[in-house]
Computed example of a mutant assay.
Amino acid sequence: MKVKGIIMLALVSFIWGTSFVAQSLGADMLPPFTFNGVRCIIGGIALLPCIWFLDRSDRKGERPKANYRRKDLLIGGLACGIVLFVASTLQQIGIRYTTAGKTGFITAFYIVFVPVICFFMKKQTGLQIWLAVGLAFVGLYFLCVSEEFVLAKEDMILFLSALVYAVHIMVIDHFTMKAPGVKMSCLQFFVAGGLSLPVILFSESPKLSTFVPAIGPLLYAGVLSCGVAYTLQIIGQRYVKATVASLILSMEACFSVLAGWLVLKEYLSPKELLGCLLMFGAILIAQVQLPSKAKVVELEGEEVS
């Protein structure tokens, strides 16, 4: 069963990584709020059949019935949707000016931001995490800073997007035990899509003809990246420990670079490639579970005996 979970999570990271290509293509065809709004609504619709299937299984007694308060589901979906709206909008604006590979790696910086947020929330943060943060900042420097030592505007936008995505992860962590994940995800997509509608109607005003060439990227980013990938993640993590799952999912950054190279013919300089490697190394360091002191003492005692 563990192999089954690993395969599912690897597929999730592949979908999320390659979706940066769909976003990059979509950014050339549609304004950012239009692409994200339609994408989120498609993602919410894609999850409706999954919710129906799960509810049907609950009614038949095939699964343990989940106990939750509707209030927690509504608050969680609303909070996640608002934060997702901000994060995805910043990302979609930033990706218009840079490559899919760089977007993937800078977005992956959320994995390091999360423990930093935990520190300010007075949760324990070890030396291992600070090492990862420092290494990631060096990698970000090589990846994004020009010869004049100034971060490009688009990279700063993506940097802020990664920070908001870290907040999104913390919000989900708060509500994940209070509401069913698939339903909360579906609700957050409809909230994020709904928040985009006023800007779409009164500011961007896209024509119907502009949607025709963007159908492919919209469906990939909506159905696969939002709907299918999220569902596979939930199922896959039933069989794999959280630390292992996060490592597998962080491979989305590598898939984004590979997809950008294969599909968009994008090129990264040696300096940028070094930055990518350092950031990926930071992601790995942040996710590796080191044994506690108590565990080390226990193991040493067993060796002595």
Rank of each mutant, 00 (worst) to 15 (best):
V116E: 08
E302V: 11
M156H: 09
S161R: 04
R63P: 05
K265I: 07
K295P: 00
A229R: 10
E252T: 01
S205F: 05
Q23Y: 03
A286E: 04
M184N: 05
F20D: 03
A22I: 08
P180D: 01
K153W: 12
I285M: 12
Y110Q: 11
L54S: 11
F202C: 11
I95Y: 03
M177H: 15
S57C: 10
L290N: 13
G101A: 13
T98K: 12
Q237W: 02
L47D: 08
L197S: 03
G181W: 00
V3Q: 15
L218S: 07
T176G: 02
L151Q: 04
M177C: 13
L9D: 05
I51D: 04
L268M: 13
L187H: 06
I15M: 12
G236A: 06
L73N: 05
L9E: 06
G126N: 13
D55Q: 13
I51V: 15
C144G: 11
I117T: 03
K178G: 00
T231N: 11
L11Q: 05
Q188C: 06
R63C: 06
M279E: 05
G301H: 14
P198G: 06
I75P: 05
W130H: 08
F14I: 15
C226F: 10
S161F: 05
G37T: 06
F53G: 00
G222Y: 05
V3F: 13
V288W: 14
K102W: 07
I172Q: 12
I172E: 06
I45G: 03
R69W: 00
F120R: 10
E154Q: 13
H174W: 09
T103N: 13
G77F: 03
R56W: 07
I42G: 04
P64H: 13
E303D: 13
L273R: 09
V191M: 08
V3G: 12
E298G: 01
F211C: 11
D28M: 12
V133S: 02
R69A: 08
Q91W: 08
I45H: 04
I129A: 10
P291E: 05
E300K: 14
I157D: 00
C186D: 09
K65H: 12
T243E: 14
C118L: 11
R56F: 02
G77E: 03
T89Q: 04
S209A: 15
T210Q: 15
D28C: 04
R69M: 05
